[in-house]
Amino acid sequence: MEVFLIFISAVLVNNFVLSYFLGICPFLGVSGKIESATSMGFAVTFVLTLSSAITWLINNYILIAFKVPFLEYVSFIIVIAALVQFVEMFIRKMSKTLYDTLGIYLPLITTNCAILGLALFGALRKYGFIENIVFGIGAGIGFTLALVIMAGIREELDLADVPQPLKGAAITLILAGLLALAFMGFAGLISA
């Protein structure tokens, strides 16, 4: 039950993009088309799931075991960068189609703050191994959900009559605000 709560909380209530503001750059940059939003979402979910497992192991068996928690940020970011590189090579070998779909989004994931944010939140909240992985999957699905909804709205926006000064990034931010307002309605799902 505990694990299920973590999952729902990461997907809906504390959505990474709309309530923690993690991964805003790709959220604004790649939400123009539903197709690319979906690819980006899958790529991020994949890396989030893997990195949640690996950073947990590193945090518990290396950093805490050897009493060097101040190396947290340096080691996390190196692991994430290496992981993204590795995933990229792996996907290219295994499935050419998937690689072409994800394209340039893969290397960009290194600087996506959702990945490092997840590792830091996981360490801060002292989740267990399974809980941390579920948290990672939930965060990834929540990110994908927000990205795809936003892309859907922006595709419709092309037909709308937006005031001249608000065109482009400004209206996207205001839309994100309204979307965040809607997601706040999920807050009642989980008490405390």
Partner: peptide, 17 residues
């Protein structure tokens, strides 16, 4: 709350334009 952040920044971009 989060919506306020998005909307305020959106209008700041508009004002700059």
């Amino acid at each position: 709350l989060p919506p306020g952040a998005f909307i305020t920044l959106g209008f700041m971009l508009g004002a700059k334009n």
